[in-house]
């Protein structure tokens, strides 16, 4: 029990950046600046985290079940982003509300991506890139990119919300070089 509390406290203590709310253009640009400029002293690591952020944040903006209208009147997804800082790596996580129906194919994609070697993953990206623009499943190439950029597997979990929806969390580890 005590170790579980210690573990939770450590997770809170290690938070470098966290945000919950609407994922509209303005907010994304503020978060992007934080990541690009101040996260780590290593620009290469910042760029990796930034690239991952852009792809996953756009997925929330487009696909989150929870939606709000921003000041400009645009309908945008609501979600959560957390970056945790450990001694030799960062953990980047995003979370958003979804339905079981919508998230099963996404989790299958994560499993599929995690099962591939780097070579296979690059081949898969080439294939996805040649799919017509605007096709459903556009988030697919984003997840492939995240796995390639991080060079680590995609970890996901699903929590049932009291209102019957599900909260989907995807996390990836980014090693400090």
């Amino acid at each position: 029990m005590e170790s579980a509390i210690t573990e939770k406290r450590r997770m809170v203590d290690n938070i470098a950046i966290s945000y919950t709310g609407i994922f509209d253009t303005e907010i994304l640009s503020v978060l992007a600046k934080e990541i690009e400029g101040t996260l780590s002293p290593d620009d290469k690591v910042n760029k990796k985290v930034f690239k991952i952020f852009i792809e996953l944040a756009q997925n929330i903006a487009f696909y989150s079940l929870e939606r709000e209208t921003n000041a400009e009147g645009n309908d945008t997804g609501v979600g959560t982003m957390i970056i945790r800082n450990y001694s030799d790596h960062y953990v980047f996580s995003t979370g958003n509300k979804t339905t079981m129906e919508n998230i099963i194919p996404v989790m299958e994609k994560c499993d599929n991506i995690n099962s591939m070697s780097r070579e296979k993953l690059r081949e898969y990206r080439r294939l996805q890139r040649n799919m017509p623009a605007g096709e459903k499943g556009g988030g697919n190439i984003g997840l492939i990119q995240v796995a390639l950029t991080a060079s680590n597997p995609l970890e996901y979990s699903l929590i049932k919300c009291p209102d019957g929806a599900y909260f989907y969390i995807v996390s990836v580890r980014i090693d400090k070089e």
């Binding site: 930034f50 756009q58 890139r129 556009g138």
Partner: peptide, 12 residues
């Protein structure tokens, strides 16, 4: 120096 995945489709 940076392009997102949507841009990469157009670059192709």
């Amino acid at each position: 120096s940076y392009f997102n995945t949507s841009s990469s489709k157009c670059l192709v």
